[in-house]
Design a protein around this nucleic acid. Sequence first.
DNA 1: GCCGTTTTCGGCCCGACTGTTTTCAGTCG
Length: 584
Amino acid sequence: MARSNDEVAALFQEYADLISITGGDAFKARVYEKAARAIGGHHADVGTLDVKGLQRIPGVGKSIAEKVVEYFRDGSVSAVEDLRAKIPAGVRQLTAIPTLGPKKALALHEELGISSVEELADAIQAERLRDLKGFGPRTEEKILHGIELLQSSGDRVLLDVALDLAEETVAGLSRVTGCLRCAYAGSLRRFRETIGDIDVLVAATKPMPVMRAFTELPDVTEVIAHGAKKTSVRTGKGLAIDLRVVPPDSWGAALLYFTGSKAHNIRIRESAVHQGLKLSEYGLFDAESGEKIVSATEEDVYARLGLPWIEPTLREDRGEIEAGQRGELPDLVTESDIRGDLHTHTDLTDGLAPLEEMVRSAAERGYDYYAITDHGPDLYMQRMTDERMLAQRDQVRQLDRAYGKGGGMQLLHGVELNIAPDGGVDWPDGFLAGFDLCVASVHSHFNQDRGTLTRRIVRACENPYVNIIGHPTTRILGKRPAIDADLDEIFAACARTGTALEVNAHPDRLDLRDEDILRARRHGVKFAIDSDAHSTLHLAHMRYGVGTAQRGWLTKEDVINAWPHTRLRRFLDKGGRPERHSVT
DNA sequence: GCCGTTTTCGGCCCGACTGTTTTCAGTCG
């Protein structure tokens, strides 16, 4: 079950989209969008609040509060239903295509009767868009490319969606009598960036009660297959879940098998064959006698193959087996190694929560330090000024005195700078020198040529005040590809200048991605795993960043926010920032 | 529809880019 806040947020986002598509008041649409974000990021369950309590959420007034109450009372909101009746769901789906917004979607629907992505693709093939006003050949091309992009992420869903569903499923099945062990496996256990379907494994002597309970879970909309060993269902989110039930003593072999990856499994099975053994999901057997040797735990199986236990996040056949054989597997960074978050926002710019709330939530996570990095003035929409930034700094210093007491949490005042098309940033050195750290990121002009983009980011690295390059490739999963820059040149510049690369933990981004991390690491780059939180809830995204970092083989030595505060401070000094030592 | 050291109306993030235009609409961040 989704959090009820997420349900309501999705509903209002849909309502906002429908208002836009039907040509309703743009300001009204924006208000609903804002309310959707505020509710999605609100810490308390909106299902438990009354109209008065709801109105205390910023951006939620009387009308929206009443719609929330209506939703929990009636299961639907009549205003939303009215618009749904007017516009087929597929028309809204069209706006998921990059470069295609509500206006074009409505035109396509009204003029050509198109109400799904498939129909749109067909219409383009049939050249039916040619006569439509405002639709030229470039538009056609861009839409086709957008559809491709949309479909390349295909049926896969983002890590957070899959993980929530998997954890609920595991919790639900673990309560069933006779369920001895339960865990999710597959690409989810390996923390891949998107998930095609969820694999859940249960150890039980009698499978049927577990299977039955599985088909009756609240998210299940369709039972695809139902047997004694395997049951497959589809859920409301369109995501399929496969459940395998195995005898308790096969647990380890089955978990290993269903965790994959396929490439990893093939390699270890080969290794088994070379040793006169046979490995399957039921256990490790003697090839000749067929006698079972081990199967109870993953450790047992790996050990009999002459390997240490290998972290699931490494199981991609990227050298982990060889490293294991040599006893050189990395001691991967874990979430508990993370001592602080170095890229977060507040409602001074586009975050949802005030500074105090963000800091309180960070402290609850047990961090040793925490950086506030709101946007600088070059992102015009955020209306940042020198005065507002300095006023925030005063607030941060005050809070730091309260939180830093007795070895508590130290606060760093930072900024997320915008890397301009020429590689410059928002402020001159003199002003930048006042920050404890600077994140710098690309937010626009993604289509510069490769050389220009590369030089642009390298120049940002060479800025003595830029400590971290935020979401370095700017990709958004399923929406926007990575920028075309020479990453190796950027990685080399980072290593040379003492600039860290971010592993942005937001499940939409996961940027850098695992392969890039592996490459950057070889250049000797350091990394910062950051939530880029825009609400208190986003602080918990850290786990996705850590999973991605593990897939990139990172240890806590590689990750600057796994270091003690004093060591971090030395790194942030970039070998002595000039303005700190001499007046220019 | 929300909000107010602009307070019950009249604003609401603002600028750039792209493609289709011939002066601008749509989309994006």
